[in-house]
């Protein structure tokens, strides 16, 4: 059998040769190879990870949706795009992402901060939404992490390292995100006095279960027929009525799901207000969580990661996740 050279196949070129577009190239040039630099999105979580170095040059990632393929359930978007704008584009095809929507919050900011939406129970965490990232590294190069497909195990998962890294590994310029269908129905209901653990055990449609120590809110999500059936079952656990979701206190605590479901005001000095995400473990509270201790081994690994990716410490100095 005679061997012949592989034919050129249709479609985009291989990832290694994929072109860096003008906007991304300009962003890389702006970041450059030296000097302290930090990236700013909408500034909605600007204080995250400690006060940034005021001497650091502030750059902003480019904006715009590059490519949306509804049948692939993926969208390629520049990191400076607001999540709200992105979701407006996606909604035209009945889709959205797992990224949280905050006024003026950007895609790059949401990824760098890594905080998931209060509907994480249904949407999944932000970290699972990032399929491919193109970022500018400490040397000013454009680096690609991940693959342009919904599934990939080609090499190390640098995307996971980027999400929540607060721009200390690289500055994200462009992201390929997994999208999800917007469900037929989404309805918030509330019941005073319901037991949050029972609701979690019972509900099959809850995309979010919030509990403030006395009332439970459920975001029932899915096909109308399922939501109706689910709410019918939930009636056995409390007097659920349509309601707006609760206002979330400003500080974010990270607990285990079990710990969040047994949270109490005693952990907030006796009189604090909180809203716990049941089944997830995030607790929104009116005062900050006491500092958590990282194990010495984990702390050492974190230091080594930072030192390997940013030896001079120029990326987002002053901040650490």
């Amino acid at each position: 059998m005679e061997l012949t050279a592989p034919r050129a196949a249709p479609g985009a070129g291989p990832g290694a040769a994929a072109a860096v577009d003008e906007a991304l190239a300009e962003f890389a040039a702006e970041v450059g190879p030296s000097g302290p630099v930090c990236v700013r999105g909408g500034g909605t979580r600007w204080c995250q990870g400690g006060p940034g170095d005021p001497e650091a040059r502030v750059v902003a990632a480019p904006a715009g949706v590059i490519d949306f393929e509804p049948a692939e359930m993926t969208v390629r978007v520049r990191a400076g795009t607001t999540v709200a704008d992105l979701h407006q584009t996606l909604a035209a095809a009945g889709q959205r992402t797992a990224l949280p929507v905050r006024p003026s919050g950007t895609v790059g900011g949401a990824l760098a901060v890594g905080e998931s939406s209060p509907a994480r129970l249904g949407l999944g965490p932000v970290r699972d939404a990032l399929l491919q990232a193109r970022y500018v590294d400490a040397e000013g190069r454009v680096v690609t992490a991940g693959a342009p497909t919904v599934k990939n195990v080609s090499g190390f998962d640098l995307c996971k390292l980027l999400v929540g890294s607060l721009g200390t590994i690289g500055l994200i310029g462009e992201a390929l995100l997994r999208t999800r269908p917007i469900p037929q129905t989404e309805r918030w209901v509330r019941a005073a006095g319901a037991d949050p653990k029972s609701v979690l055990g019972q509900s099959r449609t809850a995309a979010s279960i919030l509990w403030d120590g006395s009332a439970v809110w459920v975001l029932a999500s899915g096909y109308e027929v399922d939501v109706e059936a689910d709410l019918g079952e939930l009636a056995g656990l409390g007097d659920f009525e349509p309601a707006d979701p609760p206002e979330l206190p400003p500080h974010r605590w990270s607990c285990s799901p079990a710990s969040a479901a047994s949270f109490g005001p005693e952990r907030l000095g006796g009189d604090g207000r909180f809203v716990a995400e049941i089944g997830v473990g995030v607790v929104h509270a009116d005062r900050p969580q006491p500092p958590r201790q990282m194990s010495p081994g984990a702390a050492r690994l974190n230091d080594q990661i930072k030192a390997r990716f940013d030896p001079t410490g120029r990326l987002n100095p002053g901040r650490r996740p």
Binding site: L161, S256, S259, V282, A298, L301, R320
Partner: peptide, 14 residues
């Protein structure tokens, strides 16, 4: 970790 948002880089994911 079992908590929702363990601190530091996502070394688990890496």
């Amino acid at each position: 970790g079992l908590e929702a948002e363990p601190g530091g880089y996502d070394l688990r994911g890496a």
